[in-house]
């Protein structure tokens, strides 16, 4: 079940942040969100960053995923230093290597589930057939094989989030970032989403970094980083998640 675990231990972390600092200035007020933080995230596991709102976890995710620049420090992702890349190169890096799942599902109302997943693949230089094959496989993987022709208005919240995950997954990214993916969902749907993310990490060897203040998720993660005031308070590994992981309906 864990084809990636053996290789991950000999290679370095997929994501490595070295002494990163970030402050936001609003008028006269300067807020130091992250201060000299150093952190490595391993491939093939689901890492959860938890903490109260305002603790800097979303900022950390934005920086680790290359959506935001650091004030100081360095971020290495898959051997590239993100700070060295210009906006074009960052876009290209994200296109090749990263997937995102956001709290709001951010699906185009006019497109069917299948088209939502296919759309970003069109821009990756894949052939039409390959894009469609990947879209189908991804939607099957998140258990939406029978719903792929429906538009967002015809899908439930949980289904929409699964479409969003399939959209990220179909790119076959090495890095998958999820920001509060379950906060808009009920317990059952939230459970299903975290199970899918967990399985993606283990089945595809993907580095899955999830940010959430949802305490239900803690037990399902391979590693939990508790954050407060821009610092990591604790770094725990749990193996319970693997055994508790349920099968995903398909």
């Amino acid at each position: 079940m864990h084809p990636a675990t053996a290789s991950q231990q000999i290679s370095g972390p997929a994501l490595f942040a070295e002494g990163i600092s970030k402050a936001f200035v609003s008028g006269q007020q300067r807020t130091q969100v992250l201060d000299g933080l150093t952190l490595g995230i391993e491939a093939g596991e689901l890492t959860l960053i938890s903490g109260p709102s305002g603790c800097g976890k979303s900022t950390l995710l934005a920086i680790l995923s290359g959506l935001q620049k650091v004030d100081s420090g360095r971020v290495h992702a898959l051997g590239s230093e993100l700070g060295q890349l210009d906006p074009r190169a960052l876009e290209r890096f994200r296109l090749q290597h990263t997937g995102f799942v956001f709290q709001g599902f951010n699906l185009f109302p006019a497109l069917s589930a299948f088209e939502q997943v296919e759309l970003p693949l069109n821009h990756m230089g894949l052939s039409r057939d390959e894009a469609r094959r990947r879209a189908r496989v991804s939607l099957e993987e998140v258990g939406l094989a029978h719903r792929m022709r429906l538009r967002p208005s015809e899908l439930s919240g949980g289904e929409k989030q699964r479409v969003a995950i399939a959209r990220a997954l179909a790119k076959e990214p090495e890095l998958l970032f999820a920001d509060e993916p379950t906060s808009a969902l009920d317990a059952a749907n939230g459970q299903m989403i975290i199970d899918i993310l967990h399985r993606i990490a283990h089945a595809h060897g993907t580095t899955v970094l999830c940010v959430s203040h949802d305490p239900r998720l803690v037990v399902h993660a391979d590693r939990v980083l508790a954050m407060e005031d821009g610092r990591i308070l604790s770094d725990r590994r749990t193996h319970a998640a693997v055994t508790q992981s349920k099968e995903i309906p398909s």
Binding site: S65, L67, R88, E91, R92, F93, R94, L95, Q96, T98, G99, F100, F102, G104, N106, L107, F108, L119, P120, H123, M124, R167, A168, K171
Partner: peptide, 18 residues
Amino acid sequence: GSVREYATLNALGVGVAA
């Protein structure tokens, strides 16, 4: 009205030009 969806596409690496 679609700015969040466009932003998501951009996060996924779809260029601003597209």
